[in-house]
Amino acid sequence: MALAGNLEVFNFVDIFQVLKKDKKDGILVVESSNDEQKFGVYFKEGDIVYIRPVKKVFYIYLDIDFSSVLKKEGISEDDLYQYLVSRLPVLLAVKKGKFSFTPGFIKYDENIKPQVEIEKLIMYLSRQLSEAEVERKISDMKLIYTKTDDWEDVAKRAYLTNIERKILSAINGKKTVEDIKNELEVNELVLKRALYGMLASGIIKRAKKEKKLGFNLTKGLLKKIVNIVKGL
């Protein structure tokens, strides 16, 4: 199944959220719209291990073993962090272009470890989102969020700022976004950026609301509807 799209409407936070969720292994290919920059971003269990700038995209698919990538690039495992950190800003500066993710494909040695926590990156990028971007996820002030089961562990990996910690402590499955804004007297954009990042990194999730039916439906009537639909 495809995992591809346009960076203008599906930014890096959104992409990382999807790749992190199922702890995906694979290669994210990013191509800038001016065709000048092309990257292979190597993921292991949902975290980034390496960013490889290439002249042509097909170069990325010539290597199915990560050790041969390192060999070709002339770098050692110990240098991975340094290369990753220096190339990350260049990658993340690409705002227009396309992406596609190829799951699996690359084989990693066991000793290859993630270099940067993806949650940390998600929060970092969320702090720079525009008003229009945050509206995509936090589109309603009446929304209610709650903490996930493993929020403490995830939050540690995300390196939250003080204001983000305050926002997180106010989230309790009952307060709306508006309630939190009023309670903390926090700027709306700052609040929405924090919620966007925490939602994408898996620290918080949508709170379950009690469902209501707008019609007095009985079990007998529902059974009738089910039978009619089955027979269509």
């Binding site: 995509r136 309603d140 929304l143 609301k209 469902k211 209501k212």
Partner: peptide, 13 residues
């Protein structure tokens, strides 16, 4: 997502 947010917040069926 915006559509889901809208209905969830107002008409949580």
């Amino acid at each position: 997502r915006r559509i889901i947010n809208f209905f969830e917040a107002r008409y949580p069926s």
